[in-house]
Write a protein that binds this DNA or RNA. Sequence first.
DNA 1: AAAGAGACCAACCGCTCCTTT
DNA 2: GAAAGGAGCGGTTGGTCTCTT
Length: 237
Amino acid sequence: MATMIGWGMQEQRWRKGPWTPEEDKLLSEYVSLHGEGRWSSVARSAGLNRSGKSCRLRWVNYLRPGLKRGQLTPQEEGIIIELHAIWGNKWSTIARYLPGRTDNEIKNYWRTHFKKKEKSSQKQEKRKQQILKQKQQQQQLQLQLQQQQQVQQPQEHDIKTVFSQAETSTEEMSETHGIRQQMILKNPNSEDQCMPKMYQDFASWFDTVGDDGLSSGLWNFADDYTVAWMRQVCATN
DNA sequence: AAAGAGACCAACCGCTCCTTT
DNA sequence: GAAAGGAGCGGTTGGTCTCTT
């Protein structure tokens, strides 16, 4: 298929998309007769309306004898991990150490199996930052509340009582999640006096719970708990 | 059972390097 | 030595299949 582009010049329109069994047969026959290489002449010689690039890729990644099919073995996966650590995205170099596997196959495998882990750890890091930020905001808010109390000279007020009230209101919730015992106030005079232990240990707790724990509801619980607690504090003041 | 999301894979694209003239 | 064409490589895209809700 060719298109006239002026003064008798022709622009070659190569076929694109998935290869048909007929095309595969033609290419295989051509390569078995003439060997690999001279890909640009394949189109003319083999009667294929494909670019040389396309022919080469089809041969290398699909038709070449000795190619392995199916999932990569754990051993192969291990080799990929090790070699990628050395060479990075040098897929063709890595492929040389995995007979029967193509660079394209390894590249695809890496993308689907390892890129998502990379992405997940980035997401986890982002969440940690959010939690730290939230904790800081809570501390700041509590500090403001304390300052307000001092300015207004309110009645003798024990933050411990406030918290125990809040705890009562969220008792059912906390017991359901089995972490009630974590809601123990530290030193009443410390800066953490208004923060449940759960929040003090949030970063390490996050590490234990991980992404799944957060996405499956614990994170929401923490949020609800915060809201309930803050409401109680505000209401008491 | 249907819709949406995610995984997988084949193929294309653009770039660089190498070889030939 | 320079230009042109070919080959190879890594990144990206798009289609299909499978799993989950």
